[in-house]
Design a protein around this nucleic acid. Sequence first.
DNA 1: AATTCGGGGGC
DNA 2: GCCCCAGAATT
Length: 369
Amino acid sequence: MPTASRTCTAPLAPTPRWTALAIERWFARAARELPWRRITATGYRDPYVSLVSEAMLQQTQVSRVLDKFTPFIARFPTVHALADAPEQDVLAMWSGLGYYRRARHLHAAAKAIVERHAGVVPADPVELVKMPGIGAYTAGAVASLAFHVRAPIVDGNVRRVLLRVNGLDVDAEAGESAAWREATAIAESARNVALANEGLMEFGATICTPRAPKCGTCPLRSRCVARAMNTQDTIPRAKTAPARSMIHHLALLVRDGRGRLLVEQRPGTGLWAGLWQAPALELSKRPRSAIAAVREFADSIRVGPPKDRPFMILRHELTHRRIEARVWASERMSRKKPMQGIFLAPGEIADLPLSALHRRILLSEQCSS
DNA sequence: AATTCGGGGGC
DNA sequence: GCCCCAGAATT
């Protein structure tokens, strides 16, 4: 028996090869069936489908994307169909997913693929990353998952998994470059890079979760440094949250004689750029008198006076803002000064690109009428 | 390097 | 309430 027993030695981190093979083995058995994972006659998945799903999945959970993905592909089945579609149609199919810039970028990327690559999605991540809305992650994902190119990918899941397995007790930002180095080594040593890459993400989403990771059934636990040192719950370290500003919306619901609702389009930049909504006054402070403000607003857009009280108050939270919307029903429109604007019937409103906030406003008025 | 861009799930 | 999510572009 050795006299110098090792009682408190840090465990040895696994090699990239070991991690890749363990993840591949696990994923081959545990993969969820998702609509964008279907294999075509080529033996690989449709790269256009991969491109759409990866754009939708940016900062968006799988369960959210499931509702929107199939209708989107049905409406725009090919890269040509998407490239030829009006932007408003693309936004309408994206409505409710958030981060609408992604939809515009995806649309622009489809046009670029048609114009510069004869309508064929490139397999080279160096080419992919030149397209609007495609960064290092999405380029690597399309290249590796749809073409089996040995390109690395690091998303929030992969970063967390690799930091934990290697016991790097840092915050997510500090661990970014280390995660890319490790992901590169994994992609290069994997047996099947598509299985290894997608498996790492799935593993992070279902086993090595942000909170309460399932270490008891983890296929990596024999070699996981975080598990051995009981740091799995603190990796990656949290960062301080940004302050949130308050915005007050005073929205008006205006109907014409046929019961249609007035809508306006937001400016081309900033929050909910180019999306449609009920006409609204937006204030950075709570108004001294909301009713006075909304009366003045109604007069300025030439509609009849609002009722005395809002019929609905909605609260909506975004990452950097918190929005309180008070919604007034306006009385009839002024006949003397007929206002100009766009009125839409309920069925037509359903086809507009609307933020979740204004969808709630407009649809609830449709229901209450 | 820090901010902006949505919306919702999970605890 | 807080953190996070198959991130990317802009400042």
